[in-house]
Design a binder for these strands. Structure first.
Lengths: 260, 260
DNA sequence: ATAACAATTAACAAAATGTTAACCAAAAAC
DNA sequence: GTTTTTGGTTAACATTTTGTTAATTGTTAT
């Protein structure tokens, strides 16, 4: 560490004006498209609308614009803890996958001064989001598709943050069993396929015959079996389909032994 | 002061006491083990020793301990820019791969107060590090192997940061062409293999016959050809070996179509 | 010369993949 | 109540990619 740290002189080095935790909350919404058809799935992000005025009646910073949920971090908590807290306050949901993916610290990103944002993404299974409620300073909470969100005039640099979040979520979906956070405990292969396709677009995923042949051999999912009987459902289709669940196998891949 | 700034109630939210950028600088050191033998490669990390006392003669925070290079970020720069600057100051090298990988913000990690560290890793090809020089407040600069570093009593939470950095570098080595940052522009397959093995430990990489058959087909490296003639070298061996270089193919892998 | 050695290259059986077609049970249509 | 359609799943098979072992090549050390 350089000179600064040793002879730390607060007057010499300005301290940040604030440290915030922002969360890009993603969910996948299923819309019924007909009975006994797999529903259409769309990736959505939750945004809140900033109030025009503060409680004191002053004009609010970036008021009226849509923004990521989040807020100032208290000294006694970490950004991750703040994200957990904020997410609970905004959506009423706990125990979700939350992950840090970046820091936004460019001077000027927030007109109030030098404010650092520690950005996270979170995955909410769609059924959990019914409990969502507008929080203290949020006039409205709404879900937007990715197409919609990039049409909006977002607060601060939140467009950039969402862009990056989307990139990370795509990457994590390809490389980890992140998909399980979008799915019920026990699911059918077509549900998994649907989730993957909302985020990734590998062409072979769309080819049912290939996906349905390969998927059962994946080491991180397994058939649900009860009393020796494979469990099936006809949740989505006329024909009974095998239920699967994620096990705790940790997949590992590398570009040096992948196929191309 | 803008209107926004006035409405900001600083008393409500304490501000961090400082915002630092720390860099885990990795390099791979080759030690000759005999002529015409591929040298032994070891992953090393660069640490600096904090001085016992500040220039004013006061006891230095965490003085005498080994620490990651880094320092306070100025409001007008981003953490990334600070990392670039610090790395130049500490090693005299520019244009290197630097990547953010985490934030450390737990209260108590730095005894001086609420200080947030934005952590990066950097990759330095070994020949570049000869230019290293002790910087202003660093009594010493030294390279440590991973075994050595975890024996040391490091300053702050830098042990944790290095642990995490190592994890990220392993991951990035598997999933990106990060290896090219450890290698010269044109390299031989055994050099690539050596670099990969210092960080990853996939068993098949060690099997020469498999590695040497697969590697030439990897889409992101290509044979160096000049005037129709494949370029070869006998840098490391008696027999001439084909030179390769990375091209700009961007490899993409996924756990859903990998082999296991 | 010849043995040793690193760096390939060849050969070939075993496994995985891409592709097309068949199968099956339950609705839905007739 | 028979037939058709639909989603989920298997079967079959040619093609490609692996894992493994052996052979080849050019260069030094002896």
């Amino acid at each position: 560490m350089s000179e600064e740290l040793l002879n730390y002189d607060a007057s010499k080095y300005r301290t940040p004006y604030g440290y915030t935790s922002d969360i890009a909350v993603f969910t996948i919404i299923s819309t019924e498209v007909g009975s006994y058809k797999p529903p259409e799935k769309t990736l959505k992000i939750m945004l809140i609308k900033r109030t025009e005025r503060t409680k004191e009646g002053d004009l609010n910073t970036e008021g009226g614009k849509w923004a990521l949920p989040g807020g100032f971090i208290k000294p006694e908590e970490t950004a991750y803890e703040a994200a957990v807290r904020e997410l609970r306050e905004e959506t009423g949901v706990e125990g979700l996958k939350i992950k840090h993916f970046g820091v936004y610290d460019k001077l000027g990103r927030d007109k109030r001064g030098w404010i650092i944002s520690n950005a996270h993404y979170a995955i909410v299974p769609e059924n959990k989001l019914v409990k969502k409620k507008a929080a203290d300073d949020a006039a409205e909470v709404e879900l937007f598709s990715m197409d919609e969100v990039f049409q909006l005039d977002l607060a601060f640099d939140h467009k950039q943050i969402i862009d990056d979040a989307l990139w990370f979520i795509k990457k994590d979906m390809s490389l980890t069993t992140l998909a399980k956070n979008f799915l019920p405990k026990e699911f059918v292969l077509s549900e998994l396929q649907g989730v993957l396709l909302t985020v990734m677009d590998e062409p072979w995923l769309k080819l049912d015959s290939q996906f349905f042949r390969k998927a059962p051999t994946l080491p991180f999912i397994e058939k649900v079996v009860k009393d020796g009987e494979p469990q099936k459902t006809n949740r989505w289709s006329k024909n009974k389909a095998q239920l699967y669940r994620f096990n705790d196998f940790n997949p590992y891949v590398s570009i040096y032994n992948a196929k191309y």
